[in-house]
């Protein structure tokens, strides 16, 4: 695939093909998380016992992770700005910082989950915990995927190649961020 097909380079709708596709990816992801969180909310409204279980989540780690993810999104934006200015090396540096934010997030999550599992709050302990691990786990999977893609994009951006991809991975990363902004109040704050 050295040469791109003409189809990839056209833009009849007035938006670059890559950006258009990422928006469609995000649209399809919204319904996946929407279905899961919608089910959770329906359960939550019908079962008071969920609140007792939710009391055992660690709001401080959740808040710390929210802070980390939002900060990493800032670096993603700075990377986009650098890429727009044609500075691939700076864009790559910003993407590495974003990826580092994702890794801190995952580390905090690992610590948090280990503690909870040691206290007996496993995935099958209660339906609340089933939702907790499934939703946060699905989200964490997206964080992992985002980090991997980001490192690939950064490696290219360093050589000033495919700079438009910096924006695309940024879009995706913001989406992952927004999902967490829904998860944090639903799983941690509402007690």
């Amino acid at each position: 695939m050295s040469a791109r097909p003409i189809a990839t380079t056209r833009s009849a709708a007035g938006m670059p093909t890559g950006r258009l596709a990422v928006w469609w990816v995000i649209a399809s992801e919204i319904v996946i998380f929407g279905g899961l969180l919608g089910s959770y909310v329906m359960f939550r409204l019908g079962h008071d016992a969920f609140a007792d279980q939710a009391a055992h989540t660690n709001t401080w780690i959740g808040a710390f992770n929210t802070f980390v993810l939002l900060t990493s999104s800032l670096f993603a934006v700075l990377g986009h700005k650098a890429a727009d200015a044609g500075d691939g090396r700076r864009a790559a540096r910003m993407l590495y910082l974003t990826a580092a934010g994702g890794m801190i997030f995952l580390t905090a999550k690992a610590f948090e989950w280990t503690t909870e599992i040691q206290h007996g709050f496993t995935i099958s302990a209660h339906t609340f915990w089933s939702f907790y691990y499934t939703a946060a786990g699905l989200h964490a999977l997206h964080v992992v995927a985002g980090i991997v893609i980001m490192l690939i994009v950064a490696a290219q951006a360093r050589k000033n190649l495919e700079l438009q991809r910096v924006e695309l991975i940024g879009l995706y990363w913001h989406f992952v961020d927004v999902v967490w902004i829904f998860l944090f109040p639903l799983l941690y704050i509402a007690k």
Binding site: E29, V31, L36, S39, A49, I123, S124, T127
Partner: peptide, 30 residues
Amino acid sequence: MASVGPLVAGAVMLLFDHTLGTAFFDPQRG
């Protein structure tokens, strides 16, 4: 694309019910 999302989530939940012993769809356990 707009309709399959909830079922993808549902399939994960069903898979967990079947393999990990969660109780998303088991009325006896909530």
